[in-house]
Design a protein around this nucleic acid. Structure first.
Lengths: 136, 136
DNA sequence: TTATTACCCTATCGATTTAATAGAGTAAGC
DNA sequence: GCTTACTCTATTAAATCGATAGGGTAATAA
């Protein structure tokens, strides 16, 4: 299940992608437009800024803005920042690999085999979509 | 993230699929072979039985067994029984549809658009795999 | 019939995560 | 220098997860 954090983050990014240029947009404006709790959104935008996807400007007329062109932001990056691993089990994760504590042998693990396929197909989708593709 | 319930359920089903015929296998044997807490596995097998995937036999020489041939059990069925919705958001789920409380219009929702693609590609994987394909 | 085996069911528990809220702090602009 | 709006920390309630405990019950073998 997709977390609200990811869902809200995606909506916020999409909204910013519709803005012309790099004009900073206030948190309150994004929150209102996308029906999101403003305080919760604050922490999400902070995460996105720290990850290098967004820039921010303080003071009057400040807000958040995209640093790169939407079509140069692959969804793989966005999803990993917001949701974390794309794989459904750590043992098939590319960026967040972890060995299963049970499971003596990955090669013969039925779950591993299946989830590898799921990861690959999901990864395909995210690789073939940039933020620009999400804009209606 | 895949729940342990699903993971263990998949392993148990795969193990049963390797057994010849419909000989009942004891919970304790499955638990031991797959490194699973026996009590936890009990509840999982119960779910699988209630969903019609497994049969059980009580008393001495009893246990659980597959009702159908492994190659006639699509992973879509298994995953929906164990994990629930295949989609990452309820608004793109085929079997567990729910409207998002935020989000006035699905057609113009960026999250909806992306998650629809993810669902379709994941569904493809599960449709192209039966329990028989998981056996090493 | 009787004892045993092994499935069946309910309840509870601690740990973790999630989503949201509160409030104070700080930098930038007019 | 005052306001605006981002920044950060802490706290919270609720939900979920994984696991455990313990008794109940049906079926089988002897």
């Amino acid at each position: 299940m997709l977390s609200k954090k990811t869902k809200y983050g995606l909506k916020a990014l999409t909204f910013l992608a519709t803005q012309e240029g790099r004009v900073p947009v206030q948190i309150s404006e994004i929150a209102q437009h996308e029906n999101i709790s403003q305080k919760f959104l604050e922490s999400i935008l902070l995460t996105l800024r720290k990850s290098g996807l967004l820039g921010s400007k303080k003071g009057k007329g400040g807000g958040y803005y995209l640093i790169k062109d939407p079509k140069d932001i692959p969804m793989t990056t966005v999803m990993r920042v917001l949701e974390g691993p794309i794989a459904m089990v750590p043992c098939v994760s590319l960026n967040f690999y972890e060995k299963c504590s049970d499971c003596p042998d990955e090669a013969s693990c039925s779950v591993h085999k299946l989830m590898l396929q799921v990861r690959d197909s999901t990864l395909d989708v995210f690789r073939n979509n940039t933020l620009a593709d999400l804009v209606p």
